[in-house]
Design a protein around this nucleic acid. Sequence first.
DNA 1: CCTTGACCTCAAGTTCACCTGAGGTATTAG
DNA 2: CTAATACCTCAGGTGAACTTGAGGTCAAGG
Lengths: 146, 146
Amino acid sequence: MALEPDDLLAIGEVSHRTGVAVSALHFYEQLGLIASTRTAGNQRRYRRHMLRRISLIVVAKRLGIPLSDVQEVFTSLPLDHSPSLRDWRRVAKLWHAELEQRRTQLDSLQRELTGCIGCGCVSLKACRLLNPEDALGEDGPGPRRI
Amino acid sequence: MALEPDDLLAIGEVSHRTGVAVSALHFYEQLGLIASTRTAGNQRRYRRHMLRRISLIVVAKRLGIPLSDVQEVFTSLPLDHSPSLRDWRRVAKLWHAELEQRRTQLDSLQRELTGCIGCGCVSLKACRLLNPEDALGEDGPGPRRI
DNA sequence: CCTTGACCTCAAGTTCACCTGAGGTATTAG
DNA sequence: CTAATACCTCAGGTGAACTTGAGGTCAAGG
């Protein structure tokens, strides 16, 4: 079957392995998130390390991280060859804060829902729930006080 | 300043406190995510417990949970009066699984990035990183093997 | 009373993250 | 060689989540 030079994957193969649609892969390539070489007949061939990149994109998306952020982080990764340990370390560092923030927000939300419910206060008017703005730790658009 | 009946907030006030734009509040109302009473002059007035609802919407969004999911969960909450302990408990239950899933994915991503980097394997070809599809635990579109 | 800023509705526009379809080329099993 | 897939490009469409703008109303200070 595969008369391919070695470990180069066709786009359909990549799609099956990652669960990402072919059209999405085209799209990610347009954005520069992934890259491929071409056969003589202009078909894309992917190196195996792209699978990892794509999986990261998928998970990031699931966590509500926009592709533009992924793109930013990926600029420090080489497109042409498998990233080195040093490369990944850099990515890890860049995302650590972001991921920690997500985790904190997850915790807030869960504490809001379960923690406080378990804390015994009968009325939700008690507790610190009266001022959700500081309880939930806004950070994005952020509430401005005037 | 506030000659308001009591604890009713104007939309601008709500916008400031939650950091959510007025236009977005209109939009959320259209979707039925939030509700307001009107003054004689047709202006919206919000009860204080809406702030909590709105904050939940904000955090959920941040975590990549679509508004349709929020909507679904909110159907069990009363729009006209402050939700009871029982109401919140129901919401908490509904979201628990979802939030746990998010947490798991966060963990996967972080392990992928930092855990394995710290594990001492020099080449990323070693380790289980060779097959990112099972390492990252796909669950949505999911990779199908043929 | 009058002005200013906050508010209203409704329609249309925007951004993101893709998907769909048309029309054509590549690759490979038989 | 041929037929069945798989792949290509490019244009336009889709759905979610809003934002913007036009054209007007409401509320409160001076």
